[in-house]
């Protein structure tokens, strides 16, 4: 599966709340960041967790968020960041 997004592209994490312990932290849902790098595709843990090992691998990204975009009351400087690994099906192109 080819990656839809490339480095430096702005992406927004879906604001979805399906049940279960998923790899997309709640604190970044609905937030916009920048693709830091495209990682090797891997098994979708949301399928693997239910015994589905033979599916296509899904692209995985490291997305960099500014702290001030994650936490509006962030006390530190505006250049502080958080990098999070996010699977492609959680990402959409950011609206400019």
């Amino acid at each position: 599966m080819t990656a839809r997004f490339g480095p430096r592209e702005e992406v927004t994490v879906a604001r979805r709340y399906p049940p279960g312990h998923l790899r997309t932290p709640f604190y970044c849902r609905g937030r916009t960041g920048v693709v830091e790098r495209v990682l090797p595709a891997s098994i979708n843990p949301e399928e693997e967790g239910f015994g589905m090992y033979d599916r296509a691998q899904v692209p995985l990204y490291r997305v960099r968020f500014r702290q001030v975009d994650l936490w509006p009351s962030y006390a530190g400087p505006a250049h502080d960041t958080v990098d999070i690994e996010i699977y492609e099906h959680w990402l959409v192109k950011a609206e400019s």
Binding site: R23, P40, P77, D80, V82, D83, E85, I86
Partner: peptide
């Protein structure tokens, strides 16, 4: 930055603190 300070690491504001959340592979 508060967590770092509790570990004795005080960083000036001109240093970017980059947190890595190890969420997947």
């Amino acid at each position: 930055r508060s967590v770092l300070a509790e570990f004795g690491t005080n960083l000036p504001d001109d240093v970017e603190v980059r947190v890595h959340d190890s969420t997947a592979a």
